[in-house]
Design a protein around this nucleic acid. Structure first.
Lengths: 160, 160
DNA sequence: AATCGATAGTTGCACCTACAAGCAATTGAT
DNA sequence: ATCAATTGCTTGTAGGTGCAACTATCGATT
């Protein structure tokens, strides 16, 4: 094994701060959605991805790719959203193993209702805390990290 | 309610990318530690915080503050680390409600063994993906977000 | 010193997620 | 046409975390 390259003081400071953000920000966003809309961030994100899909319908595995969720996880989340009336499952005619998940009217209404509060939280904790220049920097920096974290950009791709 | 201020295109791009990082990075760091060291990132962080404390000992609530954990969560994590032999509980002489948690020799050895791999992962996914200038930008940006997320900087403070 | 409220920590219960096993449908090779 | 391997999704089981309830102790007041 080669010698460990420890972090410099500047690197360490940046990392400690960034780690704190990684810990606190998701919790803060979740809290807003759970208290205001009774949705976890992941549930909201799932509904949001569906709402942006053409026809507001997606196959389960396509939705899993967009939300970076495992199939088992997504399957249960869909079940919950289904019993809340926000999504509906239907069979896929092309491949009878597959299931399509579609956003119901109630689900669409839920996204529309929840979006402003969520965006407001994103502004409060992130966007409005930064200058336009810093937002651009964050964008570039995030892209650089994503190249390492997700080389195939499965997370961002709208499906080839 | 006032009119929603939606995100501009640039803001939205930055946010989508940053969200992906928020989702992928913790999972990537966890994966390295779990597979290589059989420790969750939170367990590692707990041991690391203890290892940096004077005398490698801390009261449970002080440790909870440093790790941003609820007492119930930390209590159970300590129980696990204790049965693994990495930490030990002892009674606090000054306040008999409190418990001190100390790092054992085995716990210290575990941190020492795990640190290089973890730092290497941090480098691989974050530090080495960025220029020195970008690391400085990330540091400043994180600080700005933390001011909103954690106004009292409980997370970073080494306890007043 | 007796008491009431706050604090330190643990535990019961419910929920969410991961991993692995399972079932059904599809694809590819013979 | 048939069988084996793969794919799409669901479910059984185990483990981690949050919230609320609980015990024990401390501190302040009377």
């Amino acid at each position: 094994m080669t010698e460990t390259r420890w972090l410099s003081d500047d690197e360490r400071t940046a990392w400690v701060r960034f780690t704190a953000v990684l810990e606190l920000l998701p919790a803060a966003l979740d809290l807003q959605l759970v208290t205001d809309e009774d949705l976890t961030h992941f549930e909201y994100f799932t509904l949001a991805m569906l709402s942006e899909a053409p026809g507001r319908i997606l196959r389960t595995s396509a939705l899993a790719a967009r939300t970076n969720a495992s199939l088992p996880r997504l399957s249960r989340v869909i079940s919950r959203l289904e019993s809340a009336g926000f999504v509906a499952r239907s069979l896929c005619s092309e491949d009878r193993r597959a299931t399509n998940v579609s956003l119901t009217e109630a689900g669409w209404a839920k996204v529309v209702a929840a979006a402003p509060g969520h965006v407001e939280a994103v502004r409060r904790f992130v966007i409005d805390a930064l200058t336009a220049e810093q937002i651009e920097q964050l964008s570039v920096i995030s892209a650089a990290m994503l190249k390492r974290l997700d080389p195939d950009s499965r997370m961002l791709a709208s499906e080839a």
